[in-house]
């Protein structure tokens, strides 16, 4: 019972403990400027994890987010020249649309989400390769600064990415807490049959969840390509694992229904602190993936609601 009561608070306790631990090893870590720049670096990952939260919140998964971001870096790099600021609209629309496709496949055609999103990810990868001719692309630096410079500058010591992240978090939080969509998604995650029996067209809302996941992955890709001033079909590889870890460590379990976007904020910060701590504690970066893999297993094992799984397949 006590475990049940502690569980919701584990994520932020973990975050505090980890931060304190690194702070003890190297007090410089806790300098505001350092923390802020750390936070600024993690924003693309955070935005991706934010979107992924919606897919996981309803008990699904979106494995296409990484390929989606890859594809968007290519699209952004190519069309920035011709479309200017409108390229952002194109990117988000592409992400939203492809996410909708995943959602359609999952809800209307009963393809499990890990397969449907894997397949959509394959489609994204192909598009990225096709558009880019399988090469790395560069943005025109001047035009990038003119159109998207506001995304990556600093205001005082605060990286501008953080404002973008805060705005998106606020929007997602609003969707989650205050809209019909958020309410229905919660009901789907917590008890889909009951939501259906209440006369709700559950499928429509589930599709939207995948679409939001796609759209936010697209924004993450856009920001990433702006930061790097270019794009390539594999440039964002390595995002998927930390994004899933961020959502699950934050306390949104694979079975959905509890947690939410605020949890993902904490989860992403945990990921950031773990990364930083590896640096400070002298652990080689090559061990990062293995570590995150193990953290992922631990996080799932701790958070998953086994009463919702009749048989574990």
């Amino acid at each position: 019972m006590t475990m049940q009561r502690i569980k919701p608070h584990l994520p932020w306790i973990t975050l505090l403990v980890l931060t304190a631990m690194v702070g003890v090893v190297d007090p410089n870590f806790l300098r505001p400027a350092n923390l802020l720049s750390l936070a600024g670096d993690i924003v693309p990952l955070f935005i991706m994890a934010l979107g992924l939260t919606f897919a996981i919140y309803i008990g699904g998964i979106d494995l296409s987010v990484q390929s989606m971001a890859n594809m968007i870096t290519v699209i952004a790099s190519i069309y920035l020249a011709s479309l200017g600021a409108w390229v952002a609209v194109l990117c988000i629309a592409a992400g939203f649309g492809l996410g909708m496709v995943s959602g359609f496949l999952t809800t209307r055609l009963c393809v499990p989400s890990f397969i449907s999103t894997l397949a959509v990810g394959g489609v994204c990868f192909s598009i990225a390769q096709w558009l880019s001719g399988n090469r790395a692309l560069n943005m025109d630096a001047e035009q990038r600064n003119a159109v998207f410079g506001w995304m990556i500058g600093h205001t005082g010591i605060v990286p501008n990415e953080l404002f973008l992240a805060a705005a998106l978090l606020a929007l997602c939080l609003f969707i989650e807490r205050r809209t019909i969509l958020g309410r229905v998604l919660k009901a789907v995650g917590a008890g889909e049959p009951a939501a259906k029996a209440s006369g709700i067209d559950v499928g429509r809302y589930k599709m939207l969840a995948f679409a939001i996941s796609g759209a936010l992955a697209a924004i993450a890709g856009l920001l990433f390509s702006v930061k790097l001033s270019g794009g390539a079909p594999t440039i964002a590889n390595g995002f998927l694992l930390p994004a899933i870890v961020a959502v699950l460590v934050g306390g949104t379990p694979l079975t959905g229904g509890v947690g939410g976007v605020l949890n993902t904020l904490i989860g992403t910060l945990i990921v950031a602190v773990i990364r930083a701590s590896m640096l400070y504690l002298g652990v080689e970066a090559t061990q990062q993936q293995m570590l995150f893999g193990l953290v992922l297993i631990g996080a799932i094992a701790l958070t998953i609601d086994r009463s919702k799984l009749r048989t574990v397949k």
Partner: peptide, 27 residues
């Protein structure tokens, strides 16, 4: 074992183990 003992759905258990495997290869 991760899948059966920890009762984690196989797609996630194996995905995580895949990451661990790649990570171990890097290591």
């Amino acid at each position: 074992m991760v899948h059966v003992r920890l009762q984690i759905p196989s797609f996630m258990a194996s995905l995580a183990m895949g990451f661990v495997g790649t990570g171990a290869a890097v290591l």
